[in-house]
């Protein structure tokens, strides 16, 4: 096959299968990444070498190639990869792949074979993830940023309203943060922000979402949560921050022997989706008002939204 001269040097995997899904061709790129020689795999069922490839999706795709002559574009975002090849790039342990499948026809147009082209997109996927992260996360604390919070709140709000499911919001703020900064310096202030974020994260479920809303202000979205449960979560966060005073100890960077330790507390306001909070802004405002009440009543406490 004279085309082999091209197929064996292209920077992509190329596999050709017959109707029984036996391998008819396996290019050098595939050999390089799988460690399997063309001569060893040709004539065998692909399944014998790669049982993991046979997902329902693959089955559906290859059938639609043979049945309709479809071209199938398998995205990395949805499927990560088709063939599991080791590759370590930042957060990925396997090569991320973008895959195209399509029919090969005989002279009479009948489909006799299918081709699979595999492209390595690991680097692009890693950049993509990095950019996404920069875009939605707060650089200092690693929790979500305000912009992403607002778009998620809108989605959750719409979803919960549509299905009449409960949805709660906790807004909290570090007490006397300005004086912490003034007394111990901004680096220590940053340390406190990070510490508070990680403490709060530990108290939340996977589906909850924590974001840095402003300078020292944070917001949590609690899907499928009534206000009474949200109050309990808020109280747990408050208590954990309060009793953690030793954890707010940091080793001073300039003189490794001295430490800085401050008593840090937070105030929290909680709101829930209901008739009086029928817009996102209102839900936020109610939590913010409750937070303000907590501050006014002496800080280091949780206050539930007023029903008026």
């Amino acid at each position: 096959m004279i085309y082999r001269q091209v197929f064996d040097v292209i920077n992509a995997g190329l596999v050709i299968l017959d109707k029984d899904l036996r391998v008819c061709y396996w290019n050098r790129w595939m050999t390089k990444h799988s460690g399997i020689d063309c001569g060893d795999i040709v004539g065998s069922q692909l399944r014998d070498f790669f049982p993991d490839v046979y997902t329902k999706y693959f089955d559906r795709s290859i059938k639609s190639v043979f049945k309709f002559g479809n071209f199938v574009f398998m995205s990395q975002k949805l499927h990560k990869y088709l063939f599991k090849f080791p590759k370590n790039v930042s957060c990925f342990q396997s090569m991320q792949q973008s895959v195209t499948m399509g029919p090969i026809r005989e002279r009479d147009n009948a489909i006799s074979h299918a081709f699979i082209v595999i492209q390595d997109v690991t680097e692009i996927a890693a950049y993509d993830r990095k950019i996404r992260e920069i875009n939605i996360k707060d650089g200092l604390t690693g929790v979500y940023n305000r912009r992403y919070f607002e778009s998620r709140l809108k989605d959750e709000f719409d979803r919960h309203k549509r299905y009449c499911h409960p949805l709660s919001l906790i807004m909290f703020d570090i007490d006397h943060f300005k004086s912490i900064n003034d007394t111990y310096g901004h680096q220590y202030g940053d340390f406190v922000l990070k510490k508070i974020s990680s403490t709060a994260i530990e108290m939340l479920r996977v589906n909850d979402m924590l974001a840095r809303y402003g300078g020292e202000e944070f917001c949590c979205i609690l899907p499928e949560t009534t206000i009474s449960s949200a109050m309990m979560v808020a109280e747990r966060i408050r208590k954990n921050v309060e009793t953690q005073d030793n954890n707010f100890t940091t080793i001073d960077a300039s003189a490794t022997t001295t430490t800085t330790s401050a008593k840090v507390t937070i105030s929290l306001g909680v709101s829930e989706l209901c008739e009086i909070t029928n817009t996102c802004e209102h839900l936020l405002k109610k939590a913010d008002d409750a937070l303000y009440t907590a501050k006014r009543e002496g800080r280091n406490r949780v206050v539930s939204m007023s029903l008026f």
């Binding site: 329902k56 559906r60 479809n70 071209f71 199938v72 574009f73 398998m74 995205s75 975002k77 949805l78």
Partner: peptide, 24 residues
């Protein structure tokens, strides 16, 4: 589908899913 859906990507994944269904 074999994928676990990530909330922060769910919109994008929904689109990818639609693309696949549409393609077929």
């Amino acid at each position: 589908a074999d994928t676990v859906v990530d909330a922060e990507m769910s919109d994008e994944l929904d689109n990818e899913m639609l693309i696949e269904i549409g393609n077929i």
